[in-house]
Design a protein around this nucleic acid. Sequence first.
DNA 1: GTATCTGCAAATTCTTTGCAGACAG
DNA 2: CTGTCTGCAAAGAATTTGCAGATAC
Lengths: 137, 137
Amino acid sequence: MITITEVLREKGLKVTPQRIAIYAMLSGTKSHPSAEEIYKALMPTNPTISLATVYKTLDSFKTTGLVQELSVGNGRSNYDANVLPHPHIVCTNCGKIFDFEIQGLSSLRNQVADQTDFIVEGEQLTFYGICPACRHN
Amino acid sequence: MITITEVLREKGLKVTPQRIAIYAMLSGTKSHPSAEEIYKALMPTNPTISLATVYKTLDSFKTTGLVQELSVGNGRSNYDANVLPHPHIVCTNCGKIFDFEIQGLSSLRNQVADQTDFIVEGEQLTFYGICPACRHN
DNA sequence: GTATCTGCAAATTCTTTGCAGACAG
DNA sequence: CTGTCTGCAAAGAATTTGCAGATAC
């Protein structure tokens, strides 16, 4: 079993209680929290943590590939510890963000490279709609 | 030939010089400008226009479906007068945003609806990479 | 004439920065 | 011990808001 300490050390990051808490929180949720939400979630257990540290930590995690940052159009960034390429779907009613899987993502990338003559490095595929829970209310 | 005045009137918006200027600018460019860029572009010809008006106008255009707002992760919103669904590709070097076309977008939507049980209303498909111009420099 | 729109300034929200002290390795 | 990290407060950037006067219709 690989520990968070090992993950951080592997990336050349110093292992601090704040970083462990942030990475543990993010990898234990599917809710794609914002920096503020991470901060508030950690307050009870880490009363001295600061929002600036959350931002700085998320920035090092991004740079080292430990998390990905999402821009789904809600005026803030959301974070995902699942760094494998995968699309998201956002409920336009409740704002929740969900992961899902699609087929043929790599052939889509090839199609894009052909069409645009870009060297394609990544993508953010975001769908919008009404989630099952909101639909049934 | 359909005029901007007609387009605005059709949406129930009052026809003002500011709105005409903003819509004309947006529909005449492929550059996906931000609010600030629109504002600066219009300054020479509309010296009294204000940034707040640009924001408010873009908001009514969004609401009425005259423009779409993009969130490509650069910390601001970019606007596109092409409201037909189409993907974008962003150069991670120069920041420029380009339109392109892909096949099978509607079957992709169906696949998403099946997978997620959402009512799918729209999507933002954003790819990232190095554009031909930056690659050759 | 009336509701809507504009422009200004102030406020708000999200994020970044500078710096001094703390801590990991 | 040294470089990195944290937490604070202040700064910065993007966007929104309130309001009085102007304008479309």
